[in-house]
Amino acid sequence: MHKRDWLPPEITQGQPRLVITGRDEVLLEGHEGLFSYETGNIRVRTGAGMLQVMGENLTIDYFGVQDMLIRGRVDGVQYGGDGA
């Protein structure tokens, strides 16, 4: 087995890592920028494509170089192919 296979894909392949806590918080590590922001819909560029977070009263609590923390009422998370 190659040594790189031991490392997680978010490090080796630039893949995003998504942590959803309940329906109130979405932590996205390894994003590539904000594409659009509405209170009911946030679209973020990632190495795996466009990530869409749907919900109500969504706010970006932290917008860092690597991480993004989204808070609000989360209804769904979906990957799309456009804009990536």
Binding site: G33, L34, S36, Y37, T59, I60, Y62, F63
Partner: peptide
Amino acid sequence: VEKLLNQGWNKGIRLKRVKRGRNRSVTV
């Protein structure tokens, strides 16, 4: 305005409490 946030992000500017406001505005 998201493009502006992205350009800031490209320059290493960290933001907190990004909230969508009225008239295509956001508060950060």
